[in-house]
Computed example of a mutant assay.
Amino acid sequence: MSEVLNHKQVGQKLTRMAFEIYERNVNSTGVVFAGITGMGATLAKLLADELKRISPISIEELEVILDKSDVSKSEVELSKNLDLTNKNIILVDDVLNTGRTLVYAMKPFLELEIQKMEIAVLVNRSHGLFPLRPDYTGFELSTTFNEHIRVDVAGSQHSVQLH
């Protein structure tokens, strides 16, 4: 197992992503960070906190709850019942592998009158099976399907590891 990003580097990536989000959403009526269950929700909180630190944009957070081990059979729910009308939704996950989880995580938003939806991931592995690309990426990493990425941002020592 080798460390790809250390604590300081993960922090720098998140700060850069927050500035990019601010630049693209400066005139929005509000941004909602929708973090996918697990590390996606944790990253959404970190990005929201960073954006709150650098901008006056109205920011809300919620979790997209689903079973990552079997997304095709999983119920997909939102942790909060927020008014998302004309809001910019930023769907957040830790690693973009094939895109399957992100596609299923979009389901609750399909019938809502949102302004737009964007995708933010800390690591993009570029193994896309679905035609989606992240709008905000912390790190691009070419890997084989046999390699695994482990993102740990829950504690005080953030890291991204390849094994």
Rank of each mutant, 00 (worst) to 15 (best):
residue 149 I to H: 04
residue 139 F to K: 00
residue 26 V to K: 06
residue 134 P to H: 00
residue 93 D to T: 14
residue 148 H to D: 12
residue 132 L to D: 01
residue 52 K to T: 15
residue 51 L to P: 14
residue 115 Q to C: 12
residue 156 S to W: 12
residue 93 D to Y: 11
residue 49 D to K: 15
residue 21 I to L: 07
residue 137 T to Q: 05
residue 20 E to P: 00
residue 139 F to D: 11
residue 40 G to C: 03
residue 112 L to G: 01
residue 135 D to F: 06
residue 163 H to T: 13
residue 105 A to P: 08
residue 150 R to G: 00
residue 142 S to A: 14
residue 103 V to I: 08
residue 94 D to S: 14
residue 130 F to G: 09
residue 136 Y to C: 04
residue 37 T to V: 10
residue 31 V to W: 10
residue 34 A to C: 15
residue 30 G to W: 04
residue 65 I to S: 00
residue 65 I to C: 08
residue 4 V to I: 12
residue 64 V to H: 06
residue 50 E to W: 03
residue 156 S to D: 15
residue 17 M to T: 09
residue 33 F to D: 09
residue 79 S to W: 06
residue 28 S to Y: 03
residue 87 K to Y: 03
residue 35 G to E: 12
residue 122 L to F: 02
residue 102 L to W: 01
residue 14 L to I: 13
residue 113 E to R: 08
residue 93 D to M: 02
residue 46 L to D: 00
residue 57 I to W: 01
residue 46 L to V: 07
residue 109 F to P: 11
residue 75 E to R: 08
residue 82 L to T: 01
residue 109 F to A: 10
residue 62 L to Y: 15
residue 130 F to T: 06
residue 123 V to E: 04
residue 45 K to L: 10
residue 115 Q to V: 02
residue 93 D to R: 05
residue 129 L to V: 04
residue 141 L to T: 03
residue 136 Y to G: 02
residue 126 S to N: 15
residue 154 A to Q: 07
residue 123 V to W: 07
residue 105 A to Y: 09
residue 142 S to Q: 13
residue 131 P to W: 09
residue 21 I to T: 01
residue 145 F to H: 14
residue 23 E to K: 03
residue 128 G to L: 08
residue 63 E to Q: 11
residue 82 L to R: 08
residue 99 G to W: 03
residue 69 S to K: 10
residue 155 G to A: 04
residue 59 I to V: 15
residue 131 P to S: 06
residue 72 S to I: 04
residue 156 S to Y: 15
residue 127 H to I: 11
residue 98 T to A: 02
residue 42 T to H: 04
residue 49 D to C: 09
residue 91 L to W: 13
residue 93 D to S: 03
residue 63 E to R: 09
residue 154 A to E: 02
residue 156 S to M: 11
residue 112 L to H: 12
residue 143 T to W: 02
residue 155 G to F: 11
residue 129 L to H: 10
residue 84 L to P: 00
residue 156 S to I: 15
residue 102 L to D: 08
residue 67 D to F: 06
residue 94 D to A: 04
residue 8 K to H: 08
residue 122 L to A: 10
residue 63 E to M: 13
residue 35 G to Y: 02
residue 112 L to F: 14
residue 155 G to H: 09
residue 61 E to Q: 15
residue 100 R to N: 07
residue 79 S to Q: 13
residue 120 A to G: 15
residue 128 G to N: 09
residue 131 P to G: 01
residue 156 S to P: 07
residue 52 K to F: 12
residue 31 V to P: 11
residue 82 L to C: 07
residue 80 K to C: 05
residue 77 E to A: 14
residue 92 V to N: 11
residue 30 G to R: 06
residue 96 L to G: 10
residue 116 K to A: 08
residue 11 G to K: 12
residue 116 K to M: 13
residue 26 V to Q: 06
residue 80 K to N: 15
residue 40 G to I: 11
residue 149 I to C: 04
residue 58 S to H: 09
